[in-house]
């Protein structure tokens, strides 16, 4: 066996790149994923814009201007589930065992799935904003605002993908992952300011909705898009995400290592 001499860091990056390439190629080779990436955001955008748009009062802004931030984050949250499904499938198929019997960086597989999530979500978000523009979305954000919006969406996606990796490692089957995702992500995204202002919600729900991270990030993006004051939402969003990432990355890595040495 010929093994070229390079530093550990070189191989850690090289191994991760190989596995990132693998997960990325799944986006285009797996028709289900491709459809999810392209059509889900279009469907949500059109449904909410035209089904609920007339019925929900959003004060000064039009409903479509209100809606885009919510759908952007909801799509990112659901998109992150792909990591959980991918990890769970790899566990069941024995691919994790195979990779674990290789002398490579142990979190490489997770890094691959998480990175693919980021790329998928950049594609979805772009499609969604374009569709939004077609149905009346008129943002007044400047270039700096858009950079900050991109940073918020990517940080959020990264955070949810790592949380999702944990879910994939803990769940017993792919079906369980789908079920868990549904149970966790639906309340998080709907009990938020994603689709309707929190002011109309009953008190208990409103307190939850106004203080959970999904709402902060949506409010931050919405304010940036529509040229409104962002208040504390931006830094609270980043604080939430960074805090969760600091916990989620090591947890996922340890679970991954442990999973196969049980």
């Amino acid at each position: 066996m010929e093994i070229k001499k390079h530093s550990t860091m070189y191989w850690a990056i090289s191994d991760s790149m190989v596995l990132i390439k693998r997960s990325l190629s799944h986006i285009f080779k797996n028709m289900d994923q491709l459809l999810g990436v392209a059509f889900q955001p279009i469907m949500f955008m059109l449904l909410f814009r035209y089904v609920f748009g007339g019925a929900i009062q959003t004060g000064g802004t039009t409903y479509v201007n209100f809606l885009v931030a919510g759908i952007l984050i909801q799509t990112a949250a659901f998109g992150a589930m792909t990591t959980a499904i991918g990890v769970s499938t790899d566990l069941q198929r024995g691919i994790v065992d195979r990779l674990k019997s290789l002398p490579i960086i142990s979190s490489g597989l997770l890094i691959g799935h998480v990175t693919a999530d980021l790329v998928r979500n950049i594609i979805s978000s772009t499609i969604m904003i374009l569709v939004g523009l077609l149905v009346g979305f008129r943002p007044i954000a400047g270039f700096d605002d858009w950079l900050l919006i991109a940073a918020l969406v990517l940080t959020f996606t990264l955070t949810f993908s790592w949380l999702s990796a944990i879910m994939g490692l803990l769940a017993k089957s792919v079906e369980a992952v789908q079920w868990l995702g549904f149970v966790i992500i639906f309340p998080l995204t709907f009990a938020s300011a994603a689709f309707a202002p929190t002011a109309s919600m009953p008190k208990g729900l409103r307190i939850f909705a106004e203080n959970q991270p999904v709402t902060h990030i949506i409010e931050a993006i919405r304010a940036l898009m529509n040229g409104l004051p962002v208040g504390n939402h931006v830094w609270i969003s980043f604080a939430w995400c960074l805090g969760l990432l600091i916990i989620a990355i090591p947890t996922a890595t340890i679970l991954f290592r442990r999973h196969t040495s049980k």
Partner: peptide, 29 residues
Amino acid sequence: IGLTGQYAAVDEYLSGRENLIMMGRLYHL
């Protein structure tokens, strides 16, 4: 070592050739 388990641990969406090349790269060839 090389290990072949009871279930075929191959990446479904990659071709046979892509699977093999990926493994070569992970073995640092």
